[in-house]
Amino acid sequence: MDPNIRTVERGRIVAVDMAAHMSPVELFKQADLVVKSVMIGLTLASIWTWAIIIGHTLKLRRVNRENERFEKDFWTVEDIDRFHHKRGGEELPAAKVFSAGIVEWRRSTGGKSVDKDGTRQRLMTAMHAAAGAEVDKLADRLNILATIGSVAPFVGLFGTVWGIMRSFTDIAGANNTSLAVVAPGIAEALFATAIGLFAAIPAVIAYNRMTHGINRIEARLLRFADSFHGTLSRELEVDG
């Protein structure tokens, strides 16, 4: 057989063997304990990230839909007290803001004399406080996405640096700088960085999108509170 053909065939066999050893599973198996720990931690962080993304996406959609329905129903009622008795106890941000306004209204107008300016101020404070509390509930766990998005790349980079250090140690021990000696260790190291980016990128995107969605919900709650505040303010003028 022609020596050139033998060389080509031998190169193909080496390439296939290296490709088999470069698969994600093999890279994980070949990594040392430190790099494996980094890979496992980043994989768990990625799973946690996607669980939060899916859960909060569904939650925000549901809250938006139910808030819109609640406000639409509210502005069509004639008896606010009856509506409060029927719908005020719902576990919904708009319902919480509405209930806070009604409760403060009853407290402030239940006496013989009514301080109109004080009542208006207390109504606004109560409803805005309720809106803020509901927004805080919606934003729960989003800080986890921010943390993963900012920390995961550096954790992956740590795994990369550690893996490259190990590769150089192997090179020094084998006294051989061929690709077959260098490539596996460097591939393991870069794989750790890839997992870190895989965890971080969705976390950052989801955090920004969900923060924007929560800001929109907050703005809508505050508009609802202001509109309801205007309705109750007019009631004060009528009663006066």
Rank of each mutant, 00 (worst) to 15 (best):
A31I: 01
M1F: 11
R6L: 14
Q30Y: 03
D73V: 07
M22H: 12
E66H: 08
A146W: 01
I171A: 08
A192P: 02
N64C: 05
V114G: 12
V204Y: 06
A45P: 01
M127L: 08
T211D: 13
E188C: 05
V35T: 05
G213T: 15
D73H: 09
A172V: 04
L142R: 09
A130Y: 02
D32N: 14
A15W: 08
I13P: 00
D73E: 15
A133L: 12
N143P: 07
V161R: 10
R209N: 13
R166Y: 05
S46E: 02
L157V: 05
M210E: 06
G101C: 08
T49M: 04
T7Y: 06
S99A: 15
E78V: 10
T211P: 03
N175S: 13
A219P: 03
E9A: 12
Y207S: 03
S108T: 07
I186N: 06
A203T: 00
F74I: 05
L123R: 01
K86P: 03
N208P: 07
I144E: 13
N64W: 04
K36R: 15
E91C: 05
D117M: 11
L145V: 07
N143V: 13
R106M: 11
V182A: 12
P184S: 10
W75Y: 14
D79I: 01
T76E: 10
G132D: 15
G111W: 04
